[in-house]
């Protein structure tokens, strides 16, 4: 399989504080890859650097065989979209408008129409609430909307930042199902999670981060079988 996303020796800092101290990882086409770690491990910073909403100090990022752009909209156009932490849907836009913003960089009108049907089939609740303001949706529905909004960008790779955060367990399970489903449809996934168990169950590979470094790497199965993991790195 071809490598879709390749991060090499990525370093980033907030002021003088080093949030990433040389992170390398890769996502192959068709894979689900998780990045796990306790709060403050640098997981979200990693996504921000990949999405170019934060400047990196050092390191290379390649997407789809080319160095990644430093402009967020060009990254989305290239097929890499982020579903941000805490959902961050557009509260005063309707569900439909939220989705249209997601499709904002596309010119293929027919494709956009098809993707509207696709996300409404994946999340029928969104179809029911098409004309409602995003802010009026429940937490679970907002997470569906955030995912659907990302799908509308027609990504090759979707990055999820803590998608299970603050959601009821039932909804979390549905969400991981949805991510698996998307992956089956051909979208590669980079998943940032604190919910290590759930994430490892669906992951092909996983990286464990601690204070700005990758400290463990393995297949989802290997890491699931490792009892020492949660105590040592995940702060559980």
């Amino acid at each position: 399989m071809a490598v879709l996303l390749k991060v090499e020796n990525l370093k980033a800092a907030y002021g003088g504080i080093h949030a990433l101290r040389g992170v390398s990882l890769q996502v192959e086409e068709g894979e689900i890859v998780s990045v796990l770690g306790a709060n403050g491990a640098g997981k979200s910073t990693l996504l921000k650097c990949i999405s170019a909403v934060m400047k990196r100090v050092e390191g290379n990022i390649e997407f789809d065989g080319k160095p990644i752009s430093n402009k967020p909209y060009e990254i989305v156009e290239a097929g890499l979209v982020q579903v941000p932490e805490a959902r961050q849907i557009f509260a005063k836009l309707t569900v439909e408008e939220n989705l249209r913003v997601g499709a904002g960089n596309r010119k293929d009108t027919d494709g956009i129409k098809k993707d509207f049907e696709r996300v409404y089939a994946l999340f029928p609740r969104l179809k029911e609430r098409e004309k409602q303001y995003g802010g009026l949706l429940s937490g679970g529905e907002q997470q569906m909307l955030a995912i659907a909004r990302g799908i509308m960008a027609k990504p090759k790779l979707m990055m999820f930042d803590e998608p299970s955060l603050g959601l009821a367990p039932v909804i979390v399970t549905q969400m991981f199902e949805a991510i698996k489903e998307l992956n089956k449809e051909g979208i590669s996934i980079l998943l940032i999670e604190q919910n290590a168990n759930k994430a490892l169950q669906i992951s092909d590979h996983a990286y464990i981060m601690q204070t700005g470094l990758v400290v463990r790497y393995g297949t989802g199965k290997e890491l699931l079988a490792d009892d020492t993991l949660s105590a040592a790195y995940l702060g559980e």
Binding site: Y73, Q88, F90, A91, L93, E97, V101, G104
Partner: peptide, 23 residues
Amino acid sequence: TKFGLNVRAIACNAYAARVLGVR
């Protein structure tokens, strides 16, 4: 218009708009 949609999206949440590819 699409311009207006982008403006309203940025007004709601500039960060989300940016990561979704709004210029």
